[in-house]
């Protein structure tokens, strides 16, 4: 596939506003992701992080604003984006194998009706090996640990062979081995010139794992290189003065809309 990537930003969302039943979840948010960076999206619960990813993917229709992927609308650039949803968003009792889940990543390239064949399966097998899960290909997915399930999801994104990887809390509840594997994978992707945007909860590791950060709490509080933006002052603005308490900020959202 020839990539229409040009010199534009990998992802550029402008003035994104989105509400669930009149309650603003994203308020005039800009997201600018240069290509080839690892960007964390950080903010309290209910800050709209998942909503932002889903809006970029066109899964939600924003009330205002637009999203460009390498300078063009998402619909035209679908093949350039891979998505890793939260592990808890699917039913892991579904009757299938790890390899089959990874193969789903190839469906976008196949289009309707056409079935995955030997080449799709071999790409899926390679992707499983990349996340160290080659020995679990035929395992029923409910028999995998949380970390292994997360790695299956990552393999499924890898097999999409995208330019931009949107990940929703890839480190959520994983073991140390998986965390290490994911970090290595993110760096390998960056070395390949790919772009990663990940919702991230652990403030301790933001500086270690990511180059760029967007601080979000319904509005965009700050964005840019970690060393410049990831300051105590900005974190206080994002979390409403409770930097230590990562979760549970319920009215911080309103406070941020009308500071």
């Amino acid at each position: 596939m020839r990539l229409r990537t040009g010199n534009a930003l990998a992802v550029q969302a402008t003035d994104l506003t989105l509400a669930y039943q009149q309650r603003p979840v994203l308020w005039d948010v800009d997201l600018e992701v240069p290509r080839g960076v690892l960007m964390a999206i950080v903010g309290p619960n209910g800050a709209g992080k998942t909503t932002l990813l889903r809006a970029v993917l066109g899964l939600l229709r924003p009330a205002a604003g637009e999203v460009l992927v390498f300078g063009r609308p998402y619909v035209e650039q679908r093949g350039l984006i891979a998505y890793v949803p939260q592990r808890g968003s699917v039913d892991w009792d579904f009757p299938t194998t790890a390899l089959d889940i990874v193969t789903m990543g190839t469906y976008g390239g196949l289009g309707w009706v056409k079935r995955p064949g030997a080449s799709e399966r071999s790409r899926a097998t390679d992707a499983l090996a990349q996340v160290g899960m080659q020995n679990y290909a035929d395992r029923q997915i409910s028999q995998l640990s949380g970390g292994q399930q997360q790695r299956v999801f990552l393999a499924r994104a890898l097999v999409q062979d995208a330019q931009v990887y949107l990940m929703d809390e890839p480190f959520q509840g994983v073991d140390a081995t998986t965390e290490r594997a994911i970090v290595d994978l993110l760096r390998a992707l960056r070395a390949d010139g790919k772009t990663v945007v990940a919702v991230h909860h652990d403030l301790q590791t933001v500086a270690e794992y990511f180059d760029q950060v967007t601080l979000l709490n319904v509005r965009r509080i700050a964005a840019g290189p970690v060393e410049r933006v990831f300051t105590e002052e900005n974190l206080r603005l994002t979390y409403g003065g409770r930097v230590a308490g990562i979760g549970g900020q319920t009215n911080g959202a309103d406070a941020a809309v009308f500071p």
Binding site: L59, R78, M104, Y107, G108, R115
Partner: peptide, 21 residues
């Protein structure tokens, strides 16, 4: 005909939508 689509949409509708199904 639509085995793959039925499976994908049943397991992970968000991915299905993101992939254009």
């Amino acid at each position: 005909l639509f085995f793959k689509e039925l499976k994908l949409v049943t397991f992970d509708p968000a991915l299905a939508a993101a992939l254009g199904f």
